[in-house]
Design a protein around this nucleic acid. Structure first.
Lengths: 211, 211
DNA sequence: GTCTATACTAGGATAGAC
DNA sequence: GTCTATCCTAGTATAGAC
């Protein structure tokens, strides 16, 4: 579990209920992203993460009571970036939502660390005993549900053909996003994620549109 | 590198250049697949793999000179299953090739261990320092090349629309396969991989067919 | 071919000083 | 809040006996 400080309380204002002294805490989180991205959870080492922050392992464990706590804190923070963007505003149309998805892929190209981290962790987390297993199961279920709901709303509005299999389409969309990320992580220069995604989504929308 | 024994020589015949005594070696390989599937490479332990085979770590290292050797041997063996099937016969048509891809997904549903292993390892192997990094880069490049060639042949035969972006289509197909596997590994009961894949490929073929 | 024993390295977590 | 010191566990690989 993440440390229980009144952090989220001071959302909007620059001066909140907590002092700015947690720059160190944030630095640890950022460094952890880099390390988890490169080595995953198991092969990452608290001592190395700490050293990269200029402190010792003992110092790090003052901020996060265990390695697992650090991992879950990292995931909780990173979630906001992705999910808040997709979940925030109910889009006006399916096309608008697809545009958001492409924009997210463009974002991702600019932060390879996060993409690599999720790619690496989702591999490890396939094991039910992995500390992030539950997180990833929930994350996938939630993103899928949300996508399916948006597609169903599109059907209701007449943008999509009646009888569209929204779950199938939603799973396809998630699959293409993830699959392209794999290819991109293995060979970044050779994959244009946003372009491929846009191509796929445009075709999908055309295919699902009423005749 | 894999151990250098004259193994591939005795391909067709039941009695080859080597005795059948390597049942132990095969058992180690099979056990390693299970372990790599659950824990990946780093978190797997030679001692536990050995114990699951009824021998000690020292005994295991008689067959494979290092943990890395074991991993690469496992990958080399598993490759045959997947790739020989896809690469063997040049298909008569794009539709025939797509049917083979769906059949491969059906196979995969029956051997969750291999799917989980590849899923887990491809995550870890994102790190250039990982012993399987080169293997996965090559594997992806080769499968993509092969797919693109088949699609181009389809264009040449007039099955697909002239001007088709075969690389884009090939990457989409790989992405959907991989992405569905992620969803399946996280929640096997809720994903029908072959059905989703067939749906996608049917639509793709329809979209790419000449008007 | 398999065993036991051991050398070596490394990681997570705790305790207590400053 | 950070450090040093320490405990404990675990893993790879080697050497040599049987």
């Amino acid at each position: 579990m993440a440390q229980d400080r009144p952090r989220t309380a001071a959302k909007g204002s620059a001066r909140g209920t907590y002092a700015v002294g947690d720059a160190r805490r944030q630095k640890i989180l950022d460094t952890a992203v880099e390390h988890f991205a490169l080595w995953g959870f198991h092969a990452s080492s608290l001592a190395r993460i700490a050293a990269a922050c200029g402190i010792t392992q003992g110092g790090l464990l003052h901020h996060f009571r265990s390695k697992e706590d650090l991992l879950l804190s990292v995931l909780a923070q990173s979630e906001q970036h992705d999910v808040e963007r997709l979940f925030a505003e109910p889009p006006e149309s399916v096309a608008a939502h697809f545009a958001t998805v492409v924009a997210l892929a463009e974002d991702n190209e600019r932060r390879p660390g996060l993409v690599r981290m999720f790619h690496t962790l989702v591999g490890e987390a396939a094991n039910p005993g992995h500390p992030a297993h539950a997180y990833f199961r929930q994350r996938y279920a939630r993103v899928l549900d949300h996508t399916v709901e948006l597609l169903q709303a599109g059907v209701a509005r007449g943008e999509l053909r009646p009888g569209t299999d929204c779950e199938a389409a939603g799973r396809e969309i998630l699959a293409v996003m993830d699959g392209l990320q794999i290819q991109w992580v293995l060979a970044p220069a050779s994959v244009d994620m946003p372009a491929r995604l846009r191509g796929f989504l445009d075709r999908l929308l055309r295919d699902l549109s009423p005749a």
